[in-house]
């Protein structure tokens, strides 16, 4: 099999042009996922009545839904919902004016929230129960305990899994091509349509992913070290 290195390099160039799209599609849902996911984890951890159970159901439903199906459902729901509202209030804005990347953000955020809430719940559980009792006994309130004692310890525990979550988001975001948002993977594949050299295109995209993810891993490794030393200082 002849391998066209020259074409691989040009596909690499194409995918580098769209790397920011992939990064955006991973980082925005990751950020909101941490925000919402932590709140869900805390509510579920303290077993808040009704709300806790509802959120558990929410997490299971999202976890059980394949990303592609989630994207299609959010796509139709958002577009339809938006147009219904704009029609009711006679607004000039129509759903076609929304940049589709926002729909991708919404769908990926849902998926990320479910996954990250599980990560955070696992980390909260990992902090020994004795610590909660100790904090209460010295007169800290629930909120103080959470902010000063539990979260600083839970975060370093969560970091490696959060890293996996982010890598999953980076690789998983290529499905947005379904709603015609071009990311780094599909940017590499598009030129291959002319000459059928798909192998070269895939390898080019894989190289970019690999470098991105190695960088992400190193950042998280550094974070973990940094937060762990911080933790020790607090405890001493």
């Amino acid at each position: 099999m002849n391998f066209d290195v020259y074409f691989m390099l040009s596909a690499l160039q194409e995918s580098l042009k769209y790397t920011w799209v992939t990064l955006l599609l991973a980082i925005v849902p990751f950020f909101f996922g941490i925000l919402f996911g932590t709140v869900i984890a805390i509510i579920r951890f303290y077993r808040v009545k009704v709300l806790g159970e509802l959120l558990q159901l929410f997490v299971v439903i999202i976890k059980g839904t394949p990303g592609m199906v989630m994207l299609l459902i959010v796509y139709f729901a958002l577009i339809q919902g938006f147009d219904t509202i704009s029609q009711t209030f006679h607004l000039a804005v129509k759903s076609k004016d929304i940049n589709l990347i926002y729909i991708a953000f919404a769908a990926l955020t849902l998926t990320a929230t479910a996954a990250i809430s599980e990560t955070m719940r696992g980390a909260l559980t990992a902090v020994a129960t004795g610590q909660y009792e100790a904090s209460y006994s010295v007169g800290l309130t629930k909120r103080q305990t959470l902010r000063r004692i539990i979260l600083p310890q839970a975060l370093p525990v969560a970091i490696p899994v959060l890293c996996s979550n982010l890598i999953g988001l980076i690789k998983g975001s290529s499905l947005v091509f379904m709603i015609s948002v071009t990311d780094l993977m599909n940017a590499a594949l598009i030129p291959a349509n002319t000459n059928y050299k798909y192998l070269e295109a895939y390898i080019a995209a894989a190289l970019v992913y690999w470098v991105l993810n190695v960088v992400v891993e190193n950042i998280f490794f550094w974070l973990e070290q940094h937060l762990s030393t911080y933790k020790r200082e607090v405890l001493v």
Binding site: S164, I167, K171, S174, M185, Y202, I203, A205, A206, Y209, W210, L212, N213, V214, E217
Partner: peptide
């Protein structure tokens, strides 16, 4: 581990 985690499963 780095390769398997870092690249798409299709590759």
């Amino acid at each position: 581990i780095s390769f398997m985690r870092g690249t798409p499963i299709i590759v």
